[in-house]
């Protein structure tokens, strides 16, 4: 018995120590960034770990000098529109794939899955050419509409609708409700976890997106937060207190959303491991 207890505590000690090594490796760069954001340039050069007087003023300076208000607005407008657009198209397509019999169902499902392999960089040249022809460069439309389809969203809703028992809608069908009404009034409320999962995934990805803005945006007032951050980096390369403050400002919305909806985000990641 004694041996067993000792072994157990040794093992749990080992687990705790290794876990803390992990946590430190992950947390230290974030803390280092945070502390830097509150220092004066002199303190940065001296290399003290903690700031002497916490200069929250740096955040105001970074917010103003990076001209963040407009960039926050742009990021938010595009992120929320793309997110809602994806929820609508994915819920509709996922419902058809889960509940309707039609020609080409398997094919369309495979295409939706395969589409996830194609990244923004792969199609950027032809997409740029197309958006230029449409006159959508440097506009919200160009940043939003091409992103209204998401193969993962279609997959997510299909999988979720498959788990909902059929008798729930059959009652509504008997009552003579149209398929549209069934989807919006019966199925979608039941699929709230799928809606929240896609919301978390798409909103955070859009908030964090750089590439499409870098290519498609020309005028300063159309920039988003990430593009703004890279430009701030170029301009204020030597002022690490302001640069780190700007980095934290830009990261806060997605981190807060993430902490609130972590459960759904994790569900989505685990879903991507589900066999199709």
């Amino acid at each position: 018995m004694k041996v067993k207890t000792r072994k157990f505590t040794l093992k749990s000690l080992a687990i705790h120590v290794s876990t803390w090594v992990f946590i430190i490796i992950i947390i230290v760069p974030i803390l280092w960034t945070f502390f830097t954001s509150l220092k004066t340039p002199v303190e940065i050069a001296k290399g003290t770990i903690l700031p002497e007087a916490w200069k929250w003023e740096n955040y105001r300076l970074a917010w103003e000098q990076a001209e963040f208000p407009r960039k926050f607005l742009n990021s938010f407008i595009v992120a929320i529109t793309v997110t809602l657009g994806q929820i609508v198209t994915s819920a509709m397509a996922g419902y058809a794939l889960a509940r309707m019999e039609f020609k080409g169902r398997e094919l369309i499902f495979s295409i939706a899955i395969a589409s996830m392999l194609i990244s923004e960089q792969i199609i950027i040249v032809p997409l740029y050419v197309l958006l230029a022809k449409l006159g959508w460069i440097d506009s919200y439309k160009g940043l939003m509409i091409p992103w209204f389809f998401n193969g993962f969203g279609v997959f997510l809703f299909r999988q979720f609708f498959l788990t909902i028992p059929k008798d729930i809608e059959e009652a509504a069908i008997v009552d003579g409700a149209s398929r549209f009404r069934i989807l919006w009034q019966v199925m979608l409320p039941l699929a709230t976890p799928a809606v929240l999962t896609l919301f978390m995934f798409t909103f955070i990805a859009e908030w964090n997106s750089l590439f499409k803005w870098l290519i498609l945006i020309k005028s300063p007032e159309m920039r988003n937060v990430q593009l703004g951050l890279t430009l701030f980096q170029e301009q204020f390369i030597a002022q690490y207190n302001l640069l780190t403050a700007a980095t934290i400002i830009v990261s806060l919305p997605s981190v807060i959303l993430f902490l609130i909806g972590q459960r759904y985000y994790i569900k989505g990641i685990a879903m991507s491991g589900v066999k199709g």
Binding site: A93, F102, A112, I123, P146, F148, F149
Partner: peptide, 30 residues
């Protein structure tokens, strides 16, 4: 039934064809 299903698929498919499938084909062409 086919018509009904494709009405539901239309928004996703339209975006997918115009902004994903067509660019992929055009990619080879370019």
């Amino acid at each position: 039934h086919n018509l009904e299903a494709y009405t539901f698929l239309a928004p996703a498919l339209t975006i997918m064809i115009i902004f994903l499938a067509y660019p992929v084909l055009n990619l080879f062409y370019i």
